[in-house]
Nucleic acid binder design. Structure first.
Lengths: 181, 181
DNA sequence: AATCTATATGCAATTATGTGCATAGCGGTT
DNA sequence: AACCGCTATGCACATAATTGCATATAGATT
């Protein structure tokens, strides 16, 4: 149930609407915890019911009213309590690796394409991380929160650039197998 | 629903009981797709209902009877069709990174411990991968299937060793923040 | 004039995953 | 003698996540 906490964490920064949060989950915090807009709205309703956010509607003309959610003291307590609890290992579920594992039962040219696509996706992610790093975290005077975000981002960059490298290697290895048979 | 396919892939190797499969998901294929024994048994029942595996009970004395599941032709067709479908990006969900992201709302000494624990977990995984690689894949005469598994394993090793490196860096960075405040 | 994108919210149904429990005998340890 | 771990299966309940749908309007593009 750490989606609740991820949302609360976002709201410690500033009060936001569900729409804003959904966009945040498409970028920044979404790099570490993915969630769809439906999930966000559902979880916000629960947080409201549990008294962890204070939700108030803002009148707008021309478009649907926004509902701005503010974290409450109870919400901040929940975040702190969560920070003390042990972290789970992220659960691994990668179809591409399963396909490599099952090489003999798989269409090799198609797998090749799929590896190329994945490589592009990781390259794109890496580029996005670098842009964000340069734009927001390359000055010297960073606040503590910014430093935390920079550490997370740095880990993201390491992982993505390693993925790019190891996918390259995997494609080469697959090519060699292909050539032999 | 790729748990179904992951199970079918295991059964292309040899017919297995649910118990065997559960153990396989605790190791080898479990490195790329995690599943609990309950999940495996439930999915096997579904595969049986869909006619993708053939399940027959083997009498045993002294312990519960085993049910051996064999992949059917229909099952193999499903695996092949799945191999043609595009792969999803694995969904990222890492509490530890969320905690780094939320540094200002988190207990720092506890986070330090959690990073250390995670570092140990990745070191353990890396060591396990290396042991498997040396034991099964360091000879020269590898079959095609083995080569596929080796590629997957090699990617696992790259990722884990990068995780070890970047967690080390993260711990250092966190230490520097701690010292300053 | 019609379509597309962005804003803004959310329900309903299905599928997937996780947690706890239940059964039961064998063999080894304390 | 009591307990633990391994073998072997699975149900039931609870929580989480995905997918498709639904509504409504402004402004820009084709």
């Amino acid at each position: 149930m750490a989606l609740a906490e991820a949302i609360l964490v976002c709201l410690t920064d500033r009060p936001m609407s569900g729409y804003d949060l959904a966009k945040t989950f498409d970028a920044s915090i979404g790099f570490f915890w993915r969630a769809s807009h439906q999930q966000v709205y559902r979880e916000l309703a629960r947080l409201r019911d549990r008294g962890l956010v204070d939700s108030r509607e803002i009148e707008q003309s021309g478009r649907p009213n926004r509902i701005i959610h503010t974290i409450t003291d109870a919400g901040e307590d929940v975040v702190h309590a969560w920070s003390l609890k042990p972290c789970r290992m992220p659960s691994v579920k990668d179809e591409l690796l399963v396909k490599l594992y099952a090489l003999d039962h798989v269409d090799i040219p198609v797998l090749h394409e799929q590896l190329d696509i994945r490589l592009d996706q990781h390259r794109a992610k890496l580029a996005a991380y670098h842009r964000i790093k340069e734009k927001f975290y390359d000055g010297q005077d960073l606040t503590r929160t910014q430093k935390g975000k920079l550490i997370a981002l740095t880990m993201g960059i390491s992982n993505e650039s390693e993925m790019v490298k190891s996918l390259g290697k995997a494609i080469t290895m697959l090519g060699e197998i292909d050539a032999q048979s």
